[in-house]
Every structure is written in structure tokens, then in C-alpha cells.
Design a protein around this nucleic acid. Structure first.
Lengths: 334, 334
DNA sequence: TATTAGCACTCGAATTTAATGAGTGCTAAC
DNA sequence: GTTAGCACTCATTAAATTCGAGTGCTAATA
């Protein structure tokens, strides 16, 4: 057990297969290389480590990493390194803040990072407003809890006069304010349409916009940073793989799965995927660590780090926790 | 001259230094390798080509590429390949469309691509609206020509009642609608503030927001795609360089210079930077081709392609022109 | 004068060969 | 259970060798 730990730790640092002799010196447990060799043979049989070829040292398998990580997460909280560099501030714009967070994380860890905008699962409508911006064009501004603002241009058949718009606004706000997307059902929409009279089609359009604004399940906004860090790790820097990885980070969309997975989990919020465990094809040679942050009750987002399997899990978990706390705190006072 | 062309063209395809014998077969001009050799020696002396080492073929220098490109751009319009894949459609959201355009371009050319949101140089205000979203919080929605919408949350000292807001809205719209940012001067602001009475500080805030919304000079929105393509070209795929390139494309901000440069140029709109000519440090080993698109009078944006110096300029220029046309057209009917 | 054939020479790239040494497994002794 | 010792494996590195594409130059030719 101690020996597996030694192997993993050593490999994390060096990236080279680690041999018996190295360990015999490295550990404080005084054991000769021969003893280590015996133990290592056992560990190999159990599938925790493997040797890339005869007469090379051993490297951990996914299974080996997994055991190591599980043990590590149990251990007492380490004293955390301070996150270096610009501290985050509550800027007026959430997305700028998140971009900044991703960047800080990338710089601090030297891995590729992602952060999703919060997902407003039970998010409530705060305010809707229609305005006429041009002939036959309405602007719908939809503000939901947490001051998330969405705009939507609606084309209308006829041109509406100010009075009609005023009425519609009143109608919408009195009926919808304070409701979450689950609470707006078909029946309610039908009633609204009836009340809107000739402008019922507009209500339909607005409702679509509202649905899209609040219930943005699959087009979760994702900010990334440090994709170039991928090239720093030889085991990922091979043309083929690196290309896919970079693409994934550029495309962003595939990362959604990761984010949702992390949100779904009910534990402390730190989650580790090692190699094959990751839900995304292109991340099969990586490890992924995710955390969940919460800026208001039920309003959660995901922070994630992607790096080689040989990742400094210890530090990453620490840094992630810290960032998570920082985010939590910024919004406590908000 | 013909020979330089042959050298460049051959090198574009193969990426290998090209020798005299190869050319003697390749061209239709029947010349023996010896003749070619003599000519090549001349070309080398003039600085158009160079040999990486004795007893290797020649490769073009930046100067050589430049001459080639200049000649090429003069030539009659080639028949263009159709852009393959999804055609662009005027989607309701401009930014989705631009993202899509970048992607299409990347897929078609196999280079890294960027496209900026249009820059509204002489853009005019269309509509302003303040709304109360919470106690002490106002939402300012600013719509400018081309239906570009910006939101801004303003914190106010005191809580405003509906009537005051209505007045402010009226005040703002009657005075500002139709003006461009240059036309809004300090004097006008002073007058507005005076008219606003007790709420003059809010006017100040709104004006800041307006300025930021319209005059978004340095935070030009930029969409990129195909950064992973960089890894496909050995001459760029080296760790160090590739990392920087990827970073540039992720960070996006540095690309602004390119975009602005392209906009500034008054020619047909196609511009080619070869190696050192590029205004960005990290692109020194690349070539960059940019084009300007125009969706409405004076409302322009930049499309750009970044690849190795050994780039298929011919095809790229063609594709770029085509995309440019497509964008122009989509917005003609709009 | 422009072109070409011929030839000696260069030098990077690919291939072969040899040397090195880290690491293992196994056995026998402690 | 631990350790020392030894034969064996095999990736890595370095050195030696070969190979050939490509050049420059000269002399002959049109």
C-alpha cells in the first residue's frame, strides 16, 4: 500500500517509469530494492501498476490512480497554497468574472481549465419587458434571478402601438414574475394568450424566448482557458490527441456533459475522472477534476481541470476547493 | 519568374525543399535541370529563395512568398470552389452566425480562422431603456443600429419610483436617439444632467454605459475556430510555437490588432501578411490572410485565416472572397 | 549567348551496429 | 519476511556507415 503510493507519487513528479531501487531510497521505510521488487510484482498482478516493457520501471494503471486518489481524498485537509495572482472580484458582469476565474485557475495549475456559467435550474423570472425597436420588431428583455439578462428580438406581423405594448408588459409581468420555468405550464400560456387577444402570437414568441432564457440546459455557457497547457505534457502532446483535445476545448459544447455530470453528483462537489472514466471520448487519455460552485441557493456551476493522468491531484484538488470557496464567498455578500 | 513560381507552388504542396530536377519535370517549359540551377542561383542571390543547407533544394523566403502572392492577386479571378458544408443562413442571432462562419471556414481550409463581430464605427443609438429590476438597481438596455443590444446594471443610491424612470426614459430617448457616439458631446451631457435634476448622477452612469456599448473599440468580439488545425503543419507544430499560437487563439484579444489593421486598409479588402509582416509577435512564423466584410453601410468586420507560410494562398483567397460575398449577401436582403 | 550534359563534391537523413545501463526475476542465504 | 547476488532483457544513446538528392562548375553544343 505504502509502496503503491510511493510509485504513484514518484511517477507524478518525474513522468518516468519508476524502479525498485528508486523507491527503496525515496521512502522512509527502509526496505531494500529486492523487497520492493517482490511487492511490486504483487501489485502488478493485482492490476494497480504495469511495466511498459520488460526491464522498465512500473507506472500506475488507471486502477492504480483511482486507488491513490480515493485514499488521498480521505486524508485530512491539507493546508492550501494561496491562489497566486489576481484575486477575483465581483465585477458587474458575471461572464467577465468567470473568464477571469478560468484564467487564474489555468495559470495557477498549468492545466487546461473550464468553468460554466451557473445553471439556473430552479431559476425564477424577475422581470420581462417588451420594447418596440423598429417597425415590426420587438425587443424582449428577460431578467431572471441573479440578474441574468437575455435579449431576444421578435419579428411581428403588424406594428404595435405603444399602448398595446404597455398592456402586454403589464400582462406578462403580473402573471409571470416570480415563477420558475417548471411552474409555467401550457394552461397558463393558453390563458395568457386568450387575454392578449389579437396579440396572442406574440405571447407565444415571448414564451419561447423565456423558455430559452431560463432553461438553457444544453447551451450552457462555458469559458475555458489554458488549452495550450496541454502541449506541456508529452503524453498528451502527440499530434493526433493534442489536436482532438484542443478541438474539444475550442468547441466547448462537448464539455457540457462533464459539467452536468458534476452538477448531478451529490457529494462534496469534488469529482475525479481518471482516463476511461471520463464521459468524453477525447478525454480518454486525461484526468479530469471537477468541482461545483454555488452562487445562490440552487444556482450552481461547474469548474473543471483537464490534464494528464499524471496530474498533481493533491494540489489541484486544493486549488479547486479554494477557488470554489472564493466564488461562494464573493456571492455571499452580493 | 516562371521558375520562382514553380518553386513556390511546388513547395506549397510538398513542404519539402524543391530541387532543380523536380522543376525541370514539373513545368511545361522544357528546360533541363542545369538551366534551372543557374536561374535558381540567381534567384537566391536576389533573396527570393534560400537553401536550408548545402545540397538541399530551395525554399522560398518571405520575400519570395510576397512576390508570388502579389503576382497571384493580380491574376484574373479564378473560378472558385464552392464552400462545402452547411451554408450560412441569417439566423436571428448574429453571434451564432459568426461562430458558424468561422467554423465553416476552418473546415473548408484546414487552417485556423477568426472572425470579428462588426465594428460599429459610426453606429447610431436606436433606443435606450431603463427599468427597475430590484431595489436600488436599474437595468439599462441599449440598442444601437444593426440591433446590437447591450445590457448594463446600474446601482443607484436611492430607489427610483416608476414615474421617475419613465421621465428619464423619455428624456434619454428624445435627446439621444439617432445620434452616434461622436455626436454626443460633453455639453449635451451637461444639459441632460441639468434636466434630470436630482437624478443627474444616473445620467452619468447611463452615458458611461452608452459609450461602452457603442464605442467598443478594444473589446471587439472575436470568434475563432480550427485552432487545432495548427498542429497539422509540422513547421508550426513544435511545442513552443504551437503553444503560443493556441494561446493567441484562445485569448483572442491579441487578434484585435489584426482585425483593426484589416479594417483600416482601404483596398479591395483582401490583405496578406507573410511572416514578419504580421503585427503580432506569435504569428511570426505564420501567414495571415484577412478580408473585410460589410453588413451595412459602414458596419464592417474582419475575417481572418492563419496558417503556415506555406499556405495555399490561391484557395484561401478564393474561399475568403466567397465567404465575404455570402455574408454581404445575407445582409443585403436583411 | 543560352542551354545542356557530365562529373566531382557536400551534407542531411536514414540505417546499421555497438555500447550502456536501468530494471527485472529468481535463487539462495540471512 | 528480508536481502544480496547474478544472469538476462531491452529501451536508449551514441558512433559509424551508407545513401542519394542536390549543387556548382566546366566544357561542349546550338
Amino acid at each position: 500500500m505504502k509502496i503503491l503510493q510511493a510509485v504513484v507519487r514518484n511517477y507524478l513528479e518525474s513522468g518516468e517509469p519508476v524502479g525498485s531501487r528508486t523507491i527503496s531510497k525515496y521512502t522512509d521505510l527502509n526496505l531494500s530494492s529486492a523487497t520492493i521488487r517482490n511487492e511490486m510484482a504483487d501489485l502488478e498482478e493485482m492490476g494497480y501498476i504495469i511495466q511498459p516493457h520488460t526491464s522498465a520501471g512500473r507506472i500506475p494503471t488507471d486502477k492504480g490512480y483511482r486507488l491513490y486518489v480515493d485514499c488521498m481524498l480521505d486524508e485530512k485537509e491539507k493546508e492550501l497554497d494561496e491562489i497566486k495572482g489576481v484575486l477575483l472580484q465581483k465585477e458587474e458582469k458575471l461572464d467577465d468574472m468567470l473568464k477571469q476565474a478560468a484564467k487564474v485557475l489555468a495559470v495557477n495549475t498549468n492545466y487546461a481549465t473550464m468553468i460554466t456559467a451557473p445553471r439556473y435550474a430552479k431559476n425564477k423570472l424577475k422581470f420581462i419587458q417588451l420594447s418596440r425597436v423598429a417597425e415590426g420588431q420587438l425587443l424582449a428583455v428577460i431578467v431572471s434571478e441573479g440578474n441574468v439578462i437575455k435579449n431576444h428580438i421578435i419579428d411581428t406581423e403588424e406594428d404595435l402601438d405603444d399602448e398595446s405594448i404597455l398592456k402586454l408588459n403589464l400582462l406578462l409581468n403580473t402573471n409571470l414574475t416570480g415563477l420558475s420555468v417548471e411552474e409555467i405550464n401550457l394552461q397558463m400560456i393558453t390563458v395568457l394568450k386568450k387575454q392578449a387577444g389579437v396579440h396572442s402570437d406574440i405571447i407565444g414568441n415571448v414564451m419561447d424566448a423565456v423558455a430559452e432564457a431560463i432553461h438553457s440546459d444544453d447551451d450552457l455557457e462555458i469559458y475555458t482557458s489554458g488549452a495550450n497547457n496541454i502541449l506541456k505534457y508529452p503524453e498528451l502532446a502527440d499530434r493526433e490527441k493534442a489536436g482532438e483535445l484542443i478541438h474539444t476545448f475550442e468547441e466547448k459544447q462537448p464539455l457540457t456533459e462533464l459539467a452536468l455530470g458534476s452538477l448531478a453528483s451529490e457529494n462534496t462537489g469534488i469529482q475525479v475522472y481518471i482516463g476511461e472514466e471520463a464521459p468524453i471520448e477525447s478525454l480518454r487519455d486525461c484526468s479530469v477534476v471537477t468541482a461545483t460552485y454555488e452562487i445562490e441557493d440552487g444556482i450552481k456551476g461547474t469548474i473543471g481541470i483537464v490534464g494528464p493522468k499524471r496530474m498533481d491531484y493533491d494540489k489541484v484538488v486544493g486549488t479547486l476547493k479554494q477557488l470554489k470557496n472564493q466564488l461562494d464567498e464573493i456571492y455571499k455578500k452580493g
